[in-house]
Design a protein around this nucleic acid. Sequence first.
RNA 1: GGCAAGGUGGCAGAGUGGUUAUGCAGCGGCCUGCAAAGCCGUGGACGUCGGUUCGAUUCCGAUCCUUGCCUCCA
Length: 451
Amino acid sequence: MKINLYNSSTKSKELFVPIDPKKVTMYVCGPTVYSFPHIGNARGPVIFDVLANLLRREYQLVYVRNITDLDDKIYQAAEEEGVQISEITQRYTKIYQEDMNALGVRDPDIEPLATDHITEMIKMIQGLIDKSHAYENQGHVFFSIDTFDDYGFLSNRSEEEQISGTRIKPSEIKKNQKDFVLWKPSTGDTPGWESPWGFGRPGWHLECSAMAKKYLGKTLDIHGGGSDLLFPHHENECAQSMCSHSGKPLANYWIHNGMIDFDNVKMSKSEGNLLLIRDLLKQIGPEVIRMAFLTTHYRKPINWNDALITDSEKKLDRLYGSIRKLGKVSPAEPTEEMINALADDINTPKALSELFAIAKRVNNAKSENESKQLASTLVGSANLLGLMNEDAEKWFENIDVDEKLIDRLLNEREAARSDKDFEKADQIRQEIESLGVSIEDGPDGPIWKKQ
RNA sequence: GGCAAGGUGGCAGAGUGGUUAUGCAGCGGCCUGCAAAGCCGUGGACGUCGGUUCGAUUCCGAUCCUUGCCUCCA
């Protein structure tokens, strides 16, 4: 299997060649745990989950996704609620994990906490100071970007470009205004740790560099995250890590997923249009959300709206519809086309079209044996995307409807139909449909599904 | 202002130098008491203007428009 991936750092699609031919290391920037995750937070995990599924077929994968439990937003949340910081971080870490699992995202192999790695971060800072890539001033330690010629290579920004339109707050204690903080002092109730530069806490970008090094080594195969992290977060990670490790690249392949818009407006805190995973799952099934993500290529923006949800539901209806009535279907090997589509820079839209092609073959199968075999291939292929994990019959049911009432009405209708009283039969159909359920008559009697 | 991505049929959304994307919706047919589902068939597209080419939606240039990043953000 040859995997091609679009590398943000070279802006081109490249053949994926891991450092170790048998093993792949992947680090994905995880959440800052201070509130409920919204659907934007889920797009990356879903995409990297699919990539992980693909990589695990060929390689031994070590997948690290961190938990940022060290951030001023967390302290603020704790203060607002009047609770311990650990209560906030523990609560929202659990909620994040629950929500991701609900979406069928498998846990990463390692999920490290920033607060468990302060020692590693302090060591890294000291190393940077020793190499003159960082300097201390008034209890702060800054990374000196003038000591790193390649600064800006990842996000493709020259120094002049960064100066024009810069929104960095001027600071008198920085040598260069674009220097970023590695360590800052903590005062009052703000948590902190003892360090050679006094009581304080690390800057935002440092944890990823320190934890990636600890668990995966100096150079990763794949580093992923949302496209909004490209600058400054990943650029700064690169600077720290490369200067700490004699210029060794932090990662060979940089993969960034696109953002989610909500009715054409970017979903963000400042817009106040966050759609929480929890709330959404009260209305629609987890696979619908997954399908909505996979409909668009991961690098493009997704415009989230009701039409996308109905569209995604209908797609799943078609897939599950083809294996309905076949009883329990056990997954088989995915098709070559499916694997090739994903190996081509995670082309999920193409992968979905393959799913529909298999579904058509299931529908056209001449024998029950043949349809069962094809159905197994379909489910196995869909599983690679994290879809079709449900029982087909269950998919078409809806827990919100009164099944007993539907069954009673259906029986009445069947009686009317056998009496050839079609007027009454249609009346009952209308009644059932007004409950949000549609009927399909088949050779084995009627079946129903939510509308 | 700088950097980056994109403009594909009614909608969503892949892809390709000349041949069907795919799903939904539409149209015609089969099946059905009717309908649905399914099956068969079918119409409809590549922002605009130039260039390269036997031939461009696909390559090159220009232009218009949209979006993201440059500030916390996935």
